[in-house]
Write a protein that binds this DNA or RNA. Structure first.
Length: 472
DNA sequence: ACCCGGATAAACACCT
DNA sequence: GAGGTGTTTATCCGGG
């Protein structure tokens, strides 16, 4: 016999965030264990089904206190459930919601009653229809209401989380996830802020990256749930990211979503140059390629342009050539290869990682678990993360990995150096960058940009837009 | 702890 | 002189 759950209920009401859903489960078990008859009457519910057994919308029918004018001849308060109304005879078989294990279960009472008759006597005498009992009853009603509200909120939160994460609880397969929006690093830090209010703040992502393998593990930023900040760690060149294929496959995504591409400036510059018909670009053309291909680079122009110039000068692989157009930049592939040792060969750790390509999902799992934990949902484990979406992701990763391996092995002089499968498993770490309040208007002129011809000859620089020139 | 690579910021020079 | 281009240095950060 234990009525300590009442204390927990009160604590939960005033400090709901302190408790997890597990707590609610346990609490409900305690409540039901204190009311064996009710538990028996509702034993068809799964103990793990919070929607039916926890303090949910259906629970009040079990726990709510109701005024039963027929409970006694003098109109005392009694506690019943609808089921128990129909089973009033059980009261005479010493079964009563307020009586169990020889103790009165009236909230805060715990008076010992030798038998059921003495309990009834006690109930009529100590818990008669007076101000005190009425107040206690009101409190109990509020307890139930609060629990219902809290559960509703938690359900809503869970739904928002699952919706955002594209985790279909009932559907077998979700659409490709913008996994490059997930960061295992930042998540744990900010997951606690991932309130339902912030969740709907999805980016203008008309299309999510379709090659999550090349995105690497992802990045769930929390406040915005999309990567708008600078990536301190991205696919390092030394891991040979198949940048060209990634950009090609996710072209629309990068064009329209302010997601920073998970590649270094050097890789992007090289890609820009190699994409040009003559394999050479002026600085301004490189700028234009950045802004044309990536919505992210339509902001903070001064910053990333400086970085572009810095990279062009810094890396020997970028060669400045004077021609009729003036100075153009080309790529010295030999130099580019030099600075990218093919770590894939002979590196046991990398090979091991490749063989265990399922670990691609680990960061995401960790992120999700962290998110769940932060949101007081401790029921999710790595094993439980084996949902179809992630499973497909892992498969896609393995396929991409195998393809990359074959490609690398068959052609060491790939035009896209650095296509090591290792890249696929290299996590993307993102440093959360606070959104500039003046820049929250999303990608500029998406349609126009998306419809730009590759020539993009008007050289309209986005940095001229006032919104891009924020505080620097 | 150290080294390294990458990002960022800034100063400066040169050129148009 | 303004702006663009190019170079260099310094600092920070995260990973190995």
């Amino acid at each position: 016999m234990d009525t300590s759950y009442l204390k927990k209920i009160y604590i939960y009401i005033y400090h709901p965030l302190l408790f997890s859903e597990q707590f609610l489960q346990q609490l409900w078990k305690e409540v039901t264990s204190s009311h064996p008859a009710e538990e028996a009457a509702s034993n068809n519910h799964s103990s793990l089904d919070l929607s039916t057994t926890c303090v949910s919308s259906s629970a009040p029918s079990k726990t709510s206190l109701i005024i039963n004018p027929h409970a006694s001849t003098n109109g005392q308060l009694s506690v019943h459930t609808p089921k128990r109304e129909s089973l009033s005879h059980e009261e005479h078989s010493h079964s009563h919601p307020l009586y169990g294990h020889g103790v009165c279960k009236w909230p805060g009472c715990e008076a010992v009653c030798e038998d059921f008759q003495s309990f009834l006597k006690h109930l009529n005498s100590e818990h008669a229809l007076d101000d005190r009992s009425t107040a206690q009853c009101r409190v109990q009603m509020q307890v139930v209401q609060q629990l219902e509200l809290q559960l509703a909120k938690d359900k809503e939160r869970l739904q928002a989380m699952m919706t955002h994460l594209h985790v279909k609880s009932t559907e077998p397969k979700a659409t490709p996830q913008p996994l490059n929006l997930v960061s295992s690093v930042t998540l744990s830090k900010t997951a606690s802020e991932a309130s339902p209010q912030s969740l709907p703040h999805t980016p203008t992502t008309p299309t999510a990256p379709i090659t999550p393998v090349t995105q690497g593990p992802s990045v769930i930023t929390t406040t915005s749930m999309h990567n708008v900040g600078p990536i301190r760690r991205r696919y390092s060149d030394k891991y040979n990211v198949p940048i060209s294929s990634d950009i090609a496959q996710n072209q629309e995504f990068y064009k329209n979503a302010e997601v920073r591409p998970p590649f270094t400036y050097a890789s992007l510059i090289r890609q820009a140059i190699l994409e040009s018909p003559e394999k050479q670009l002026t600085l301004n053309e490189i700028y234009n390629w950045f802004t044309r291909m990536f919505a992210y680079f339509r902001r903070n122009a001064a910053t990333w342009k400086n970085a572009v110039r810095h990279n062009l000068s810094l890396h020997k692989c970028f060669v400045r050539v004077e021609n009729v157009k003036g100075a153009v930049w080309t790529v010295d592939e030999l130099e580019f290869q030099k600075r990218r040792p093919q770590k894939i060969s002979g590196n046991p750790s990398l090979i091991k990682n490749i063989q265990t390509s399922h670990t691609y999902c680990t960061p995401l799992n960790a992120a999700l678990q962290a998110s769940m934990a932060e949101n007081s949902i401790p029921l999710y484990t790595t094993a439980s993360m084996g949902n179809p979406t992630l499973g497909n992701l892992a498969s896609a990763m393995r396929e991409e990995l195998n393809g990359a391996m074959e490609h690398t092995n068959s052609n060491g002089s790939d035009s896209s150096p650095g296509r090591s499968p290792m890249q696929a498993m290299h996590p993307v770490h993102v440093k959360e960058e606070p959104l500039d309040p003046d820049e929250n208007e999303g990608p500029l002129s998406l349609v126009t940009t998306a419809n730009h011809s590759p020539d993009f000859d008007h050289d309209r620089d986005y940095e001229d837009e006032p919104v891009n020139e924020d505080i620097e």
